[in-house]
Design a protein around this nucleic acid. Structure first.
Lengths: 228, 228
DNA sequence: GCATATTTGTCCGTATGTATA
DNA sequence: CTATACATACGGACAAATATG
């Protein structure tokens, strides 16, 4: 058997290993979706017994999933009291936007000018937001807007930064749940994202960065207001 | 009972809750130290049975700790094969330095000019590195240098960014283990950190950022070389 | 303030599936 | 191909802490 064939077999095996996931990770993925979509409201305690029974997994497995989500700040673990869906404070919102401002602005500057593929991804995100708005699906508008900003971070070309931004946006989603009028909150930002995109397409990274900073400052202000 | 007293009691309770930690977290902390200090070399498999026995904890508890450390990228979890100490590739090093460059440079720019307290922390880190070098304790030189760069990120004033940088530096430490001559690797950077500090003290954030970028580029080059 | 019920924290035993010598 | 070792996942047990009446 040739070395190339061995290597190919090895790759196939690795690929299979990558694709499979443990029960704890699948459970964590399910709970993550539920939390970020607001099906468990912040502050709710997640009982080991009831959740475990509902999902058909043992308490041990469920606890592993809880650890993962606590590490992502979606849950808070209070010793001997259980895990609760994270409730963001105004300080949390301020901190989250501090990170967003630093990372997103730096990503735009670092990657100027953006590649054609990167611009296509950004364009697609804006269009998705516009489609969702046309169908009055406001939560999806929020999702698409977040994808736009995730794509901005992807300009930096770092998988670690991408992952970190993904977690940060999931956490931020907890604060969106506190906005009682999703349309009023999300709709205005669609056009502002399109404006940022226009400047990037025109090669004006500085201008895009300025618009982005203003965007983030406004969103932060609105969210902080809702978390006082 | 007055509201102030209630609040005080609540604080005491929270403090107690904060101070206590579960066995899984304590185990994770111990393993984290062992890994970053190189007591388990990258690639080593950490057997549930033997580690659990050595630490006197059950496999269930140990698995919770493993989940945490896998989430921090210090361990890699291969389904049905166990957990292994992460082995960094050259690509990992490149990615880590991409993040460092973006975040550290942005932190310097964002926080210019630094506060007197922030400068004091930076100065202390440089001095610690110089003391360690005088005593020829090269690994500690590396630790102090990393504290310097962590302090640079702290200029941004975000607890989330601080935590993220802490994890990133812990991961980076895995790559330091591959350098067979710690003195040759760490010593030259002490003076370069001092140079960066000097410019910050002089209020020259742009100059500091340039030196920092060059510092990171050189370190990256050396580490990539060692990981080919 | 106390007694009780509930829930978490931790450990153990075990059946099953997977990987590897 | 088989045998062995190991990870996966479950369920049960009990102590300890917490919530409740």
């Amino acid at each position: 058997m040739g070395g190339a064939e061995e290597a190919a077999e090895r790759l196939v095996r690795d690929r299979v290993l990558l694709g499979r996931t443990s029960t704890a990770e699948r459970v964590a993925a399910i709970l993550r979706d539920h939390i970020t979509e607001g099906m468990f409201t912040p502050g709710t305690r997640l009982s080991e017994e009831s959740i475990g029974e509902a999902l058909g997994v043992s308490r041990n497995t469920l606890r592993e999933a809880f650890r993962l989500l606590s590490h992502e700040r979606l849950l808070v673990h209070e010793l001997n009291r259980g895990v609760f869906v994270r409730r963001l404070t105004a300080d949390d919102v301020v901190d989250l936007y501090r990170v967003r401002r630093l990372v997103e602005c730096a990503a735009i500057r670092t990657a100027a000018p953006p590649s054609a593929e990167a611009l296509a991804v950004l364009r697609e995100a804006v269009q998705a937001a516009e489609r969702a708005a046309a169908e009055r699906r406001w939560p999806e508008v929020g999702t698409a807007n977040m994808r736009f900003h995730h794509a901005i971070v992807e300009l930096a070309g770092s998988s670690r930064l991408d992952e970190m931004m993904g977690r940060l946006l999931a956490e931020l989603r907890l604060s969106f749940l506190a906005m009682n009028n999703p349309r009023a909150f999300h709709e205005p930002y669609i056009g502002r994202n399109r404006d940022i995109l226009k400047l990037l397409e025109a090669g004006d990274a500085d201008g895009a960065e300025r618009l982005l900073a203003a965007y983030l400052a406004d969103a932060e202000r609105q969210l902080v207001q809702a978390h006082l």
